[in-house]
Design a protein around this nucleic acid. Structure first.
Lengths: 111, 111
DNA sequence: CTAATAGTTTCACAACAATCGAACAAACCC
DNA sequence: GGGTTTGTTCGATTGTTGTGAAACTATTAG
């Protein structure tokens, strides 16, 4: 990972609302049950999967945040643009998952 | 570490110049010799210490960046404000070191 | 005391970011 | 086809950030 990529990644996580979105996706597809930070962000009715990402992520996150859809759309774009999440269409909605490689890069960066 | 602290931390690292400053302090006082990212940021004449932080950090970083002193001062303030570094006066200059606890918090956050 | 060096603070400004509403496009349902 | 749900894009507004110049404070040197 190029050094020049890190500012973009950190910027994507530097906004409180966007960080919440990231956590919701991260914790629903990656986190162990008892993990501390962000356990309050587990989406309703979603078990911790690890397998296939979060389905209907956009809609469901819209339902539990007080931001407009257009704003949330922008935030998704920026998380994708930083490489932190990927979204694939599933009919009318999207399935989103965290890019573990990027998360690991951050950890390496702080080694 | 409170969840609400993370955006501030990530914001501090989201600017390229500020990230470089952080790396210079981090790598000079913390990094193992062969570490990959940021090895090019080792300050001239500075051995990897781990013991006492970076002395004359402000002056020396001014000398190897093309930003004004006032801008660099602002960047230092923000890194301190995020808790990422601490600076203690040593006569006319400052000795700066990275706050390892905060770095570890970021790693935990990504667990 | 005077001069020099190190760093801070204030001010201004241009660039960028966050947000929303409205108009739009894409996929689905009937 | 017509309506609904899902998401995007555009335009506007408001707030934040990065930057430097200039005036300032603090410490050391002579």
């Amino acid at each position: 990972m190029e050094l020049s990529n890190y500012p973009k990644i950190f910027k994507a996580l530097s906004n409180e609302q966007r960080l919440k979105i990231f956590i919701m996706i991260y914790k629903n597809c990656c986190a162990p049950e008892g993990s501390k930070v962000g356990s309050e962000f587990r989406l309703k009715g979603e078990s911790c999967c690890g397998v296939g990402g979060v389905e209907k992520a956009f809609t469901r996150i819209c339902d539990c945040m007080k931001l407009s859809r257009s704003t949330i759309s922008h935030h998704f774009k920026e998380l994708q643009n930083a490489g932190l999440i990927t979204c694939e269409r599933e009919g009318q909605t999207f399935r989103c998952r965290v890019n573990e490689d990027v998360v690991n890069s951050i950890k390496d960066f702080l080694k």
